[in-house]
Design a protein around this nucleic acid. Structure first.
Lengths: 205, 205
DNA sequence: ATACTTTCGGCACTGAGTGCCACTAGTCTG
DNA sequence: CAGACTAGTGGCACTCAGTGCCGAAAGTAT
């Protein structure tokens, strides 16, 4: 009947992430204790810490699987596509998801980009993501992963992605994919002198 | 005699940061408790938390003052200098320090870039730094600070700086300023297709 | 001396995260 | 079916970071 030996797990990472997310939205991240989440999920506090190493990891769900997906997208890219284009396409593809999941994803990112404890913790997840990008770039450029070019490229694509996410969260009716594309376009157009127009001051919002 | 009213402070942020840094190097960050640091500094644990809001902030010392310096450097830049050049020069200037402080700064950055708790926490400090860059960029471009261009620019310069720091820490006899300049040059040369040379392998350093 | 102001630090508490270990719920073998 | 084996569960006790409270200490001003 059951596939594996031994006792079957009571729940899943996804289910716990879901429960936690709901509580975080209801009461706020700081005012939700790990006990609250475990109780709401019907498991022991000790057990919860076997599914997730920390409270901060709960909103991230199964990010390892997402990273594997990113790696797969890059690996499947035609080698005729330039490095920058390959990464730009992969970033866009990586952040595509069914429209019905948008509200969920939106709230998750709202937490990750605004709750200080999560902003801090996310640096560790971003580092893993940058590593995927750097690995790919290093392979394409024929240099070591810890060389300066792949490292900068990792940072630059992360920055563009997060800048797009911040824009996305700022207005209700914006399109994440479009924002990502325009952020990535900024990278491609580069920062050569004069190319970023030296607009006359005063045009704030 | 004493300048202010009331009891005089027993110590300073700088002194505490110094004591903490020494202990972190001796025993490691995780195995040093806040009690250890307070005891070594000859103050109460409760008092230490009035000087620094968290253990993670100790290695950073007085970063607010550093940020003010960065702002001042940017404000003093000739408006004839392009945005990207202005930021590049400011980044280099910001990271210049007396050579005798190099070993100290090196160990501090070694902790900040390698201890997971500090890598995470540092995201909050980096956000403040990015904000300084974005503010300047927004002013020059005549757009809102929360527009996408200044945000991307903040990320991109942060990434270049940290990539240079990682290189710096990797080898004993490297020059931080030179590494920063070459990382920033990568940004200026841009990421247009074909512009990142498909270098033949082997060119590490 | 006395009032006032500021820093200090002890105490008690919350909450995250961990090591240990017995218990539970399954499968597998004979 | 009994017993061996295996993997998930969760209670307990502990460490450590961080906070609120409040009285004591160490200064200055009058």
């Amino acid at each position: 009947m059951a596939p594996r030996m031994g006792r079957q797990p009571l729940t899943t990472r996804a289910a716990l992430s879901h429960v936690a997310l709901r509580l975080f939205l209801e009461r706020g991240f700081e005012r939700t204790t790990v006990d609250d989440i475990a109780r709401a999920a019907g498991i022991g506090r000790r057990t919860l810490f076997r599914y997730f190493p920390s409270k901060n990891d709960l909103p991230w769900g199964d990010f390892d699987a997402e990273l594997a997906r990113m790696r797969a997208i890059l690996a499947a890219t035609d080698t005729a596509v330039s490095l920058v284009d390959a990464l730009a396409r992969a970033v866009v593809e990586f952040n595509r998801f069914p429209p019905e999941e948008a509200p969920f994803h939106r709230e998750r990112m709202n937490l990750l980009l605004n709750v200080p404890a999560l902003v801090a913790h996310s640096a560790l997840r971003y580092a893993e993501w940058r590593r995927v990008v750097s690995d790919f770039a290093a392979g394409r450029l024929g240099v070591a992963v810890d060389a300066i070019e792949p490292t900068v490229i990792g940072w630059v694509f992360l920055g563009a992605s997060l800048a797009a996410y911040e824009q996305w969260l700022r207005s209700d009716n914006s399109n994440l994919i479009e924002l990502l594309e325009s952020a990535l376009l900024l990278l491609k157009e580069g920062f050569a002198p004069g190319e970023l127009p030296t607009v006359e001051p005063g045009g704030r919002t």
